[in-house]
Design a protein around this nucleic acid. Sequence first.
DNA 1: TTTGGATATGTTATAATGTATCAATTGTGC
DNA 2: GCACAATTGATACATTATAACATATCCAAA
Lengths: 155, 155
Amino acid sequence: MNKQRLTSTLNKAKQVCLEHGRKFTIQRKQILQILLTTDVPLSAYELASCYKLRTSSSVSVMSVYRILSFLESVNLVRRLNSANKYIAYGTDSEVFKRETSLFLICRHCQKVETLAVSQSDVAKLFPHFDDAGFTSQTKQFEMLGVCNECQAKLA
Amino acid sequence: MNKQRLTSTLNKAKQVCLEHGRKFTIQRKQILQILLTTDVPLSAYELASCYKLRTSSSVSVMSVYRILSFLESVNLVRRLNSANKYIAYGTDSEVFKRETSLFLICRHCQKVETLAVSQSDVAKLFPHFDDAGFTSQTKQFEMLGVCNECQAKLA
DNA sequence: TTTGGATATGTTATAATGTATCAATTGTGC
DNA sequence: GCACAATTGATACATTATAACATATCCAAA
């Protein structure tokens, strides 16, 4: 993500926080920025380390968890259940738009590609879902596999 | 799961192990039986506790993890990423048949409903994959939400 | 029959992930 | 300034998972 896009994304993020009546503190900004400028998902502990490296300051891991769940609650970051790690997206992402996402997670390079999944796509994937009488609260699906680039390298 | 179905499932499980040139030891059987006769997913530590309660013997948690990953490798149990817990199924289940599954996990009662997802269903999403050039190795999807019964109770 | 190798389990230690609790701080409106 | 809510710090602890090495068990080949 280039500098300009990063700045605009952080500005948009600030707006999102304010709209929720919450603050976009320096720590929240730093954590979000680290996630935005890293191309692999990071764990809470990795984020705490990164924070110490990148800034001259530090955060407790406890705070990282709190910051992450806050950012998650306002749809600025997502947690990957299959990795116990977190990712963030640019302003134009469907995560911002709160749509359902399909995460394609590469087992080799760890990079995550995100696809928007429409309700009709979900219906196609799970034709018998309606029969189950289940009310889904899930906004994301995760697929593990091998990405394009790694396949090429391995071949 | 009734007694007869349990017995036949355990017999089938033994066959599966033997077909893989592996053993169906007493501990593996007990762990599988606990999972089969519990209607909610259990963690490795919970399984170790259950084991102690149900049998006069015990297993180390380390062994439980090893047993679980073995049972998983021969498709007898599945791990739920969103809960860090494990489930097992009857002989007629699609888990035995190694198909892709959709797990509907109830946030209230913890029960898990399983739906089979055919390869062709997954393939319907493939236009997206082709764009992404991603090779999936995933055999399961997980949805969190509220099940039929809990909805009725809550209403 | 014994010995070698693969499989399975025991044991201990430690890493990694996550939560509870209470105190301190910061900022904002009154 | 003061009261109040939001945020963060700090400590302790709970939960989940793996590493490393030792021991046991079983079967097959010498």
